[in-house]
Structures are given as C-alpha cells and as structure tokens.
Amino acid sequence: MASRRRLKKDIDFLSFEVISDCYNYNYLHPGKGEQVTEIVKDTIVSRNQLIARVNHPDGKDNPKLVKAYYKSVYTELFASVDESFKKLSALIKEK
C-alpha cells in the first residue's frame, strides 16, 4: 500500500461514483426515489466507516499487521461498492 492518503482518495472516488450513478438513474427515472436514496445512504455510511478505519489502524507497531489491516479495508471497500452497484443494477433491470 502506498499511503493512507491514496487509500482515502480511492474510497472517496469509488463511493462518489456509486452516488453519481444513483443520481443519474434518479434523474432519468424519477419513480424509484426512495430505493435510490437508500442505496446512497448505505454508500455514505460505508464510506464514513471506511475512512474512520483508515484513520485508526490496528497494530501500529507491527508492519505486517498494518499491511493486513489496510488490505482488509481495500477488500471491504470493493465488496461495499460492488454490493451498491448490484442494488442499482437490480433497479435498472426492473425498469
């Protein structure tokens, strides 16, 4: 991992991509506003939790633990974003 700063930027970028796609869908299909809002809320909560985890790593003394910790943060980030995109994709398929 290069830096915490880069990880935070990745978290922000991926989270805002999900939110951007949700707002685009809501603009084009205004009937599903509540479901899209729930996806956005879940994404924001997940983003805030991930940023908090990055700011307070476990095992600061052991480099191997820190590396494994940040790797788990990346894994959770990708899982969270993937889940949000799947929910949005399901809404798109319904239309």
Score class of each variant (00 low, 15 high):
Phe78Thr: 04
Ser72Val: 06
Tyr74Asn: 06
Ala90Glu: 15
Tyr74Gln: 06
Asp42Ile: 01
Lys41Gln: 10
Met1Val: 04
Lys9His: 09
His56Ile: 04
Ser20Leu: 13
Ser72His: 11
Val40Glu: 05
Gly33Ser: 13
Leu50Gly: 04
Tyr74Gly: 00
Pro57Ser: 04
Val73His: 11
Ala68Lys: 13
Phe13Glu: 12
Pro57His: 06
Ser3Ala: 09
Met1Asp: 03
Ile11Gln: 09
Asn24Ser: 13
Ser46Phe: 11
Ser3Pro: 09
Asp42Leu: 02
Leu88Asn: 11
Tyr27Asp: 10
Ala2Met: 02
Asn62Gly: 00
Ala79Val: 06
Gly59Arg: 00
Tyr69Pro: 02
Ile51Leu: 14
Val81Met: 12
Ser15Ile: 00
Lys41His: 08
Ala79Thr: 12
Ser89Tyr: 15
Pro63Arg: 03
Lys86Asp: 12
Lys9Gln: 11
Lys60Pro: 00
Cys22Glu: 03
Lys64Gln: 07
Glu17Asp: 15
Lys8Pro: 03
Asn55Gly: 06
Asp58His: 03
His56Pro: 03
Val45Ala: 09
Lys41Ile: 10
Leu91Gly: 02
Leu7Met: 14
Phe78Val: 06
Glu83Ala: 11
Asp42Cys: 01
Ile11Asp: 09
Glu76Leu: 02
Ser84Gly: 02
Phe78Asp: 11
Ala68Arg: 11
Val40Asp: 00
Thr75Gly: 06
Glu94Thr: 06
Asp58Val: 08
Val54Leu: 06
Phe16Ile: 03
Lys41Met: 07
Leu91Glu: 03
Gly33Val: 01
Asn26Pro: 04
Lys93Gln: 12
Ala52Leu: 08
Glu76Tyr: 02
Asn24His: 12
Lys95Thr: 11
Phe85Cys: 03
Lys95Val: 14
Arg5Met: 12
Ser15Thr: 09
Val36His: 02
Glu34Thr: 10
Ala52Thr: 12
Ile92Ala: 10
Phe16Thr: 07
Ala2Ile: 06
Leu28Pro: 01
Glu76Ser: 07
Lys71Phe: 09
Lys87Val: 01
Tyr74Ala: 01
